[in-house]
Simulated assay, not measured.
Amino acid sequence: MRVFGIAGYSGSGKTTLIERVLPQLRACGLSVAVIKHTHHDFDIDRPGKDSWRAREAGAAAVLLASDHRTAVLTEHRDTPPRLDALLAQLPPCDLVLVEGYKREPIPRLEVHRAATGKPWLYPGDPHILAVASDVPPPDGFPRIDLDAISPLSDFILEHAYSHRTA
């Protein structure tokens, strides 16, 4: 399994970039998974549902299954999950795109939009190999245009497969 990260501030277009490169990666015959870290308190479960009731009663995990998909709701009451533990939970796949987990030592691409007004991340992150941006970085750091989907997909493949991470 190969792992490649997508980094950037909220509103920079990380999820949109992933959404746009996924069909190209799949067209290469790859099975691709995505891990998205969120800082927001989220819950896909609803009070009163059987799964919610089981978790509230103390279940460490609840697996929901239908004929078309499964979801595992795992409680992390004491410590947040580590990326390596999340990777181990995935079904077999060729490539995992990771959005977030910026402290993990995985190769990554920074997504940057000038309109956000946010600073560049790459100067402080040695794992960022290039930026996908609508403006060039001030110092000539490697850049791929945000709308250049084929070059972005090629970059991800090249660097995911040149770094063994899992």
Rank of each mutant, 00 (worst) to 15 (best):
T15S: 13
D94T: 15
A130Q: 04
H163F: 11
D139H: 05
H163Q: 08
I156Q: 02
S133H: 02
E99S: 03
S150I: 05
I106S: 12
F42H: 15
I18W: 09
G124P: 05
P105H: 13
A88F: 10
T16P: 05
A88T: 11
S51P: 01
P91M: 04
L86Q: 10
H163G: 04
D41H: 15
D43S: 05
Y101H: 13
P138I: 07
E110K: 01
A166D: 03
R143D: 00
R77P: 07
G8T: 08
R2E: 08
Y9M: 04
I44H: 12
V131G: 07
V98R: 01
P151M: 02
L86M: 13
V32R: 02
E19L: 04
T116G: 06
D147Y: 06
G8N: 14
G29V: 09
I156F: 06
V111Q: 07
F4Y: 12
H40N: 13
I149E: 07
S51V: 00
F42V: 15
Y161N: 10
I128G: 02
T15W: 06
G29H: 02
R164W: 08
K118V: 05
D78E: 10
C28W: 04
C28D: 05
L17N: 15
V135Q: 05
Q89F: 15
S133F: 03
G48V: 00
R82V: 11
A7Y: 09
P92K: 04
E99Q: 06
I18L: 09
P105W: 03
E56D: 14
L129T: 09
L86T: 08
V21P: 12
V96L: 01
D78R: 06
I144L: 11
V111A: 11
V131P: 01
P107D: 03
R53E: 00
F42R: 15
T165V: 03
D43Q: 11
A60M: 07
K36M: 08
T165N: 15
R55N: 01
G8I: 06
D45Q: 00
W52A: 01
F155V: 03
S10E: 13
E75P: 02
V111E: 06
H39C: 14
V34A: 06
T116E: 03
L129C: 04
F4C: 10
P107C: 14
C93S: 06
W52I: 00
D45M: 00
R53G: 01
L86E: 06
I156S: 04
D145T: 04
L83W: 10
P123I: 07
V72G: 10
Y9H: 14
R20P: 10
G124F: 08
P136I: 08
D45W: 00
H40W: 01
W52F: 09
V62H: 00
E99V: 14
P138V: 10
I106C: 10
P107N: 06
R143G: 01
P137R: 05
V34H: 11
L30I: 02
A65K: 10
I149G: 12
V111D: 11
D43Y: 02
E158I: 14
P151S: 07
E75S: 07
F42C: 07
A65W: 03
A85V: 12
S153K: 12
F155G: 10
L157A: 05
H37F: 11
H159N: 08
H40P: 12
C93G: 11
A7W: 15
G58A: 01
P81V: 01
L90S: 14
F42N: 11
L90V: 06
R103S: 07
L17T: 15
A65D: 03
